[in-house]
């Protein structure tokens, strides 16, 4: 168990280092997302140790390393890990080629969604205003639930 944690940490750091290797600009776009691949691998084969939180932390480190929007890659890594974990039983025993194809598919979704989130984050004057709406929805839900539950029961009677 302890060695497994250690190897996960070590491979993740190695993958992060591979991502950060300075390459010429034209080569940079062809550099694979090593860290994402490592996260996918560990969620596939060591799901007990590498869960969503691990994926989130790995993504956060990538955000910090690339000076990007903090939390963007963290979000995408978590979603990818969630997808992998839910498809795990089929994916874990699938042949290597179909695994690779699925990973490529994940990456396409990843890029599309991260582009979309980046655009949304840049366009919005402040996401906080929208976030406060989500929070007020959270607070309002019990009230609405309680009231409507009453109404529904009264109507039944």
């Amino acid at each position: 168990m302890a060695t497994s944690w250690f190897s996960i940490l070590l491979t993740s750091l190695a993958a992060l280092a591979l991502v950060l290797v300075p390459l010429p600009e034209e080569m940079q776009v062809h550099n694979p997302q090593w860290l994402l691949l490592v996260v996918i691998f560990w969620s596939l084969y060591r799901p007990a140790q590498a869960g969503l939180l691990y994926a989130w932390l790995a993504g956060l480190m990538l955000d910090v390393a690339t000076n990007g929007l903090l939390g963007l890659n963290a979000l995408m890594f978590t979603l990818t890990a969630f997808l992998v974990l839910s498809l795990r039983q089929g994916l874990g025993v699938a042949p290597l080629l179909s695994q690779a194809l699925l990973v490529a598919g994940f990456t396409l979704i990843y890029l599309a969604v991260s582009l979309w989130v980046e655009g949304a984050a840049t366009d919005l004057v402040s996401m906080a205003t929208y976030l406060s709406r989500a929070l007020s929805n959270l607070a309002a839900w019990p009230v609405v639930f309680f009231l409507l539950n009453r109404v529904a029961r009264l109507a039944e009677r």
């Binding site: 929007l69 963007l72 963290a74 402040s126 996401m127």
Partner: peptide
């Protein structure tokens, strides 16, 4: 043979934390 199907609550929590982090970073 464990499914290790992740809990939805955990995912949602992490998503919300990420969104909060993004907006705080933007601000």
């Amino acid at each position: 043979f464990d499914t290790h199907r992740p809990g939805f609550n955990r995912l949602l929590l992490l998503v919300v934390v990420s969104v909060i982090l993004m907006s705080l970073d933007r601000i």
